[in-house]
Design a binder for these strands. Structure first.
Length: 570
RNA sequence: CGGGGUGUAGCGCAGCCUGGUAGCGCACCUGAAUGGGGUUCAGGUGGUCGCCGGUUCAAAUCCGGCCACCCCGACCA
């Protein structure tokens, strides 16, 4: 490709809308353009990168036994009501109405459609296992698109769906996909890590995410400093310290004037926070919920939401709390009636707690769960924090931010049961197909690759996904020798099937070098009067500081093998 | 949805407070010089000042409403 003909221009200044590195660089390099909030066009350079990522993913999916197909973006709205997933997607589902006033959804994902397809063709266990995938646009009306390509409303996603006859089959498919994903990240030059995850709106039981550790990441990862435990903070567990059991002492009121927060209570009474019980009020689908947790811990709202199986969860407002007759600051579950009480299991790891008295400016001493109050539900709903103990090995937990570059789910049978996808097993018994799904956002992967690989001059593409492999950069194009040599090398490289961007513009060296660095093409070839004098060209990797000279004679073939040897290392 | 911010040429910005019909840099076009890290000089092209309404002899500027985009939070693969 000749630079002079390339559609798109590089920018010196940073467009004001961008503040993450990948967003700024992709805009400055002329690879993407924003059309509306969370909606982007890909220009030729950006599209070439995307297509390379797509091809790598496709190859790995095929290698794992996946079969590619294509599904519609427009889906009957009823499908979402039937599957029961409409409430959990809610407003993120884009809907349109056709001329017959029939409601349609723009597919945010395709489990419904593919399950309908599969149920028609799979009747027997002999038809399983099955791995089907598609690479296409999905639509989600995100509350807040952000970070350029990192969170958008229309995006290209690879989604593979697995169909198995039994749990062992699902486990096998799941492991195959995890391996395929690892291959994909390696080939794209991304050190992604596998973490335990919450399955969110998709539903299902077990789930893992692939994360790229990055400051700009929206997710928080909790990981162990010594073992391999790692989980999304939404899902992460910790070891809750067990306090010495004392014999239950009688309840006792203590006046606590103007003392409301756990910190204040603990200090006032002179006990550690872990000797107190904290009350937090939530509104779950409009119903008030009373949550009790040990004072040294915080509530993990994702865990709570899953436990309550509600679709909307938020902190209750002051008005709602008052209306329910609760005394914020001095509330406790003792004597509460008509409100659902949910407890974290930490409240059983201690005794004689300090808790509210449901009377303003008053607390109770020696509160003991089960003796003094009962709960409707008890489970782990605590937030794991850095500094806590690892649930696997008790070492210290750490945290960092990450970009979610892939998510795999064991769905189980809830969709196949809802949508009627059954098969007959060896014994002629009808059973629901066991499903899994495995997604990668291509644009996000591209942005993550830039977040991971750049410096203050621009992008540094890994060779495998670079828009071009080689940047051919002749200086002083007015010089006929230079022009001819460059033109010949350009033709030679192309005939060797090297992907080359030929900077045929008669620009000053500074302009050319700066553009080369900004675009981030891995290998830069410079031809100048200087190099020509020694019958050589200068070769420089974008990722390295130093350059070297290569004889002009046979340069194309040498460059070809340079590029190839690098590819083989991946 | 709550809080904050911004909308003036393709991009980055000034002008607005104190009304008089728009300016700078980059990019682009023409010419000349320069030539290993965004070089220099000269001359040009390009804007219904986000939209609608109001005040006024006169609105980018003042007032009201709306819209879009960005950031933080809520939320969310």
């Amino acid at each position: 490709m000749r630079f002079s003909r390339l559609f798109g221009k590089t920018l010196k200044e940073v467009p004001s809308e961008a503040d993450t590195a990948s967003h700024q660089l992709l805009l400055r390099a002329g690879m993407i353009q924003q059309v509306a909030a969370g909606i982007y066009s890909y220009l030729p350079l950006g599209w070439r990168v995307l297509r390379k990522i797509e091809q790598i993913i496709r190859e790995e999916m095929n290698k794992a036994g996946g079969q590619e197909l294509m599904l519609p973006a427009l889906q009957p709205f009823e499908l979402w009501e039937e599957s029961g997933r409409y409430p959990s997607f809610g407003k993120t589902l884009f809907t349109v109405t056709d001329r017959r006033e029939h409601k349609l959804a723009l597919g945010p994902t395709h489990e419904e459609v593919i399950t309908m397809l599969v149920r028609r063709y799979v009747q027997s266990y002999r038809d399983l296992p099955l791995l089907l995938y598609q690479i296409q646009n999905k639509f989600r009306d995100e509350p807040r698109p952000r970070g350029g390509l990192l969170r958008v409303r229309e995006f290209i996603m690879k989604d593979l769906y697995s169909f198995d006859a039994d749990e062992a089959g699902l486990e096998n498919s799941y492991q195959k996909m995890i391996q395929a994903y690892k291959n994909i990240y390696t080939r794209c030059g991304l050190p992604a890590v596998l973490v335990e995850a919450d399955s969110g709106a998709i539903g299902g039981k077990e789930s893992h995410e692939f994360m790229l550790i990055a400051e700009t990441g929206e997710d928080e990862i909790i990981y162990c400093s010594s073992c391999d435990y790692a989980a999304n903070a939404e899902k992460a567990q910790n070891i809750k310290s067990e306090l010495k059991k004392e014999d239950p002492a009688p309840l006792e009121e203590i006046p606590t004037p103007n003392i409301k927060t756990i910190e204040e209570v603990a200090e006032f009474v002179g006990v550690p926070k872990s000797h107190t019980l904290k009350a937090v009020f939530y509104s779950a689908d409009g119903k008030l919920v009373f949550v009790v947790i040990r004072g040294d811990l915080e509530v993990n709202e994702t865990k709570l939401k899953n436990l309550l199986k509600c679709s909307e969860l938020r902190l209750a407002t002051e008005t709602e709390v008052k209306a329910a007759g609760l005394v914020a600051g001095s509330a406790s579950p003792i004597g509460i009636k008509g409100i659902k009480i949910v407890a974290d299991d930490s409240i059983t790891l201690g005794s004689n707690f300090i808790a509210g008295a449901n009377k303003s400016d008053t607390h109770l001493r020696n509160v003991n769960p089960s003796r003094d109050f009962t709960t409707d539900v008890m489970a782990d709903i605590a937030l794991a924090r850095p500094g806590d103990s690892c649930p696997k090995c008790h070492s210290k937990l750490l945290s960092s931010h990450g970009i979610e570059v892939g998510h795999v789910f064991k769905l189980g049978t809830f969709l196949s049961e809802k949508l009627g996808a059954f098969f007959l097993d060896e014994n002629g018994r009808q059973r629901p197909i066991i499903m899994g799904c495995y997604g990668i956002g291509l644009g996000r992967l591209l942005a993550a690759a830039v977040e991971q690989n750049h410096d203050d001059r621009g992008i540094i593409w890994p060779l495998s996904i670079a828009p071009y492999q080689v940047y051919l950069c002749p200086l002083r194009l007015g010089n006929r020798d230079i022009a001819q040599t460059a033109e010949r090398l350009y033709q030679d490289l192309m005939s060797q099937n090297v992907e080359v961007l030929f900077d045929d513009r008669d620009q000053s060296p500074g302009v050319k070098f700066n553009d080369a660095d900004l675009l981030g093409i891995p290998l830069r070839l410079t031809i100048s009067p200087r190099t020509l004098q020694s019958q050589s060209i200068e070769v420089k990797w974008r990722s390295e500081k130093e350059s070297q000279l290569l004889p002009l004679e046979g340069a194309a073939a040498r460059i070809k093998s340079l590029v190839q040897s690098f590819e083989c290392n991946l």
